[in-house]
């Protein structure tokens, strides 16, 4: 396995990670180190453990054994005040998971007010900044149900960014979108990558992987079977399972 080429402390460091659902081994001996500012794309067939892996990074799933260190904190079932550590780890979900009873602006400000103890004015200012960044400042007073899927996902990205996370996790952010909306979401994600955000993206958008990823991770049956820079991965994948996967995609 290739060592990470960065001198600073890794943003995410996973060693010997295992997780099972009953007798099904979802993750097996995962080792992965993500440097600050590094952009990682994780791909692989469904059921290969991609989502489980990134959901372990913010402990929406707990792991059975191994260690996960994020921003210098060791995470696990017994980590005290796990919720405070999650504030520095942003997450974007496949199905957006916006709060339907709150406006776009309120979706973005809820955590700022409840978790960062900001006043409504301070929170609104930050939220407007990020809504402008994801290019929907004019929708702030609408409810999620009034927006298109692409707009909803951009709000979800803004909502996560409002917390100023050090790491962003994307769990198939474009899989639930119509084709014409995928582009607007990928553009926002590309901007974010250019600005140096540390990102772990589970996605099948290979164009996105090619342009922004520093490293592509390929998983199969709960293991990382190949990792390489995108150029190498797409032109000369070494593992037969990766070759088969790519041939089906392209």
């Amino acid at each position: 396995m290739k060592p990470v080429q960065n001198s600073t402390a890794p943003a995410v460091k996973i060693t010997g990670l295992n997780k099972s659902y009953g007798s099904f081994r979802a993750l097996q001996d995962i080792d992965l180190s993500v440097a600050t500012n590094e952009r990682i794309v994780i791909c692989g067939p469904s059921g290969s453990g991609k989502s489980t892996l990134i959901r372990c990074v913010n402990q929406l799933e707990t792991h059975d054994s191994g260690t996960i260190e994020v921003n210098g904190n060791v995470l696990g079932k017994k980590t005290p005040k796990m919720y405070t550590l999650r504030r520095d780890i942003g997450m974007v979900f496949q199905h957006f998971n916006l709060f339907p009873h709150l406006t776009v602006l309120e979706n973005c400000t809820l955590a700022l007010r409840k978790a960062r103890d900001m006043t409504r004015e301070q929170a609104n200012e930050i939220a407007r900044h990020y809504l402008a960044r994801v290019r929907i400042p004019e929708q702030q007073d609408k409810y999620p149900g009034q927006l298109s899927g692409g707009q909803q996902q951009r709000v979800a990205i803004a909502r996560a960014l409002c917390m100023s996370p050090k790491v962003m996790l994307f769990d198939e952010p474009t899989s639930a979108l119509d084709p014409e909306m995928i582009k607007e979401v990928l553009e926002v994600m590309t901007d974010l990558a250019r600005d140096g955000m540390t990102m772990l993206c589970v996605t099948h958008e290979m164009g996105f992987a090619r342009t922004v990823a520093d490293r592509v991770i390929f998983m199969d049956a709960g293991r990382i079977v190949e990792q390489a820079d995108p150029e190498t991965f797409f032109t000369a994948p070494s593992h037969p399972r990766a070759r088969q996967f790519l041939s089906q995609l392209l």
């Binding site: 913010n58 929406l60 919720y83 520095d88 997450m91 979900f93 199905h95 998971n97 809820l110 996560a160």
Partner: peptide, 12 residues
């Protein structure tokens, strides 16, 4: 997903 989104934002 609503629980997860709240949790992921670091809410108590």
């Amino acid at each position: 997903g609503q629980f997860e989104a709240g949790k992921a934002l670091g809410l108590r």
